[in-house]
């Protein structure tokens, strides 16, 4: 009986150790964000569940995944007020770590495009976006992150400054200022250029999450063409 008791105590310690060292388990409980707007097909998945349809006020905790389908958009608000607009065909994973004086948020962008509008980060706050090739640390700024078909990451900064670190062999770190767009390549190199008019329009159009429609009346009935406009 004593042996069984010792085994349970040992197993307990093992779980405690794993819990203390595995960030996945640390993060599991904290509610980091809510979904405030859903357009078309948006799904999410928790650690314990399968993919389920997302509705407004869906709470996203650490390790939760969110996926948008074709012509679909989701708007997330983090508990610090920061906003993430998740564009079509995008998958993200949310992590959050509550500190004594702040909250560390890490959004892993698997594929697709997100637009961020991050509130001022204070004390221990951090807002991080991780892609397969880059880690971007954002402090009170807005812009866009997109994974490109060649595996690289495009980062466009609209306001403020973003610190970006590449994950490839050449591992570089750069500060990207407002009005600048950078591409973080799989080899770790970072190229920066002044944002082109086309890129700026791309950002503006990606920022649109207000659903509107045009109604076309025909003798066979009415048709609606839906589109997205600025909030």
């Amino acid at each position: 009986m004593k042996k069984i008791y010792k085994i349970f105590v040992l197993i307990g310690f093992v779980f405690l150790f794993i819990g203390a060292t595995n960030p996945t388990l640390i993060y599991t409980s904290y509610t980091a964000a809510i979904v405030t707007k859903v357009i078309q097909d948006v799904k999410h998945k928790t650690v314990d569940s399968d993919w389920i349809q997302t509705k407004p006020l869906t709470q996203l905790k650490s390790n939760d995944l969110l996926n948008t389908g074709k012509r679909s958009v989701a708007v997330l608000k983090f508990v610090d007020g920061s906003i993430l607009r998740v564009r079509e065909n995008t998958t993200i994973m949310i992590f959050a770590d509550k500190k004594e004086k702040g909250l560390v948020k890490n959004t892993k962008l698997e594929n697709g495009k997100i637009v961020f509008d991050v509130n001022k980060q204070i004390d221990d706050d951090k807002f991080i976006i991780t892609t397969p090739t880059a880690v971007a640390t954002i402090r009170g700024t807005s812009g866009l992150v997109e994974t490109l078909s060649d595996g690289s990451t495009l980062l466009m900064v609209e306001t403020g400054i973003v610190e970006v670190e590449s994950l490839g062999d050449k591992r570089e770190t750069k500060s990207i200022e407002a009005g600048v767009t950078s591409v973080i390549n799989p080899d770790g190199s970072i190229t920066t250029n002044v944002t082109t008019e086309e890129q700026r329009k791309n950002f503006q159009s990606s920022n649109k999450t207000n659903e509107k429609f045009i109604q076309i009346q025909t003798n066979r009935g009415n048709f609606r063409v839906y589109y997205l406009d600025s909030e």
């Binding site: 407004p56 608000k77 610090d80 007020g81």
Partner: peptide, 26 residues
């Protein structure tokens, strides 16, 4: 807004119906 209530929803400029309304703050 560092020491304040952070209102997440509704936004002042949002177009909402009664059934869509929910309140969320942090």
């Amino acid at each position: 807004q560092t020491g304040d209530i952070i209102l997440l929803s509704p936004s002042p400029d949002e177009i909402l119906t009664i059934s869509e309304f929910f309140l969320a703050f942090s």
